[in-house]
Amino acid sequence: SSEKALRIVKSAFKQRGPIDGSWIYSVPEAYTVNGETVMVYKTGITRSAFGELEQYEVMVDAKTGMIVDVIDTAA
């Protein structure tokens, strides 16, 4: 489920420090990574580190729960 996908992402990011905010689109969408198209939940994480805002968009495989891509959107 989308809630489980968000828990996976939050757990992975919490290992590197606290999270300020998060979001998820609850409807899976097609996403191409390494030439393969998979259905993913698109999630996002926001946090502050060393006085700088960090924002990431994270794609989670809707079938396996594996993180398939992380995009730094604050860069």
Rank of each mutant, 00 (worst) to 15 (best):
S1N: 02
S2Q: 00
S2L: 04
E3K: 11
K4Q: 12
A5M: 01
A5I: 09
I8C: 06
V9K: 02
A12T: 15
F13T: 08
F13N: 10
Q15R: 15
R16S: 12
P18L: 01
D20W: 03
D20H: 02
G21T: 09
I24T: 15
I24A: 03
Y25A: 01
S26F: 10
V27N: 07
P28K: 07
A30G: 04
A30H: 11
Y31S: 02
V33P: 12
V38T: 13
V38G: 01
V40E: 06
K42T: 06
K42S: 07
T43D: 02
G44A: 14
I45R: 11
T46Q: 12
R47M: 13
S48W: 05
S48G: 14
A49L: 15
A49W: 04
F50P: 03
F50N: 13
F50W: 01
G51H: 08
G51I: 04
E52C: 05
E52A: 13
E52R: 15
L53K: 14
L53Q: 15
L53T: 14
Q55G: 05
Q55T: 10
E57D: 15
E57K: 13
M59P: 03
M59G: 03
V60I: 08
D61E: 05
A62H: 07
T64Q: 12
T64G: 01
G65D: 01
M66Q: 13
I67G: 02
V68G: 10
V68H: 09
D69V: 01
D69M: 00
I71T: 04
A74K: 06
A74G: 14
A75T: 10
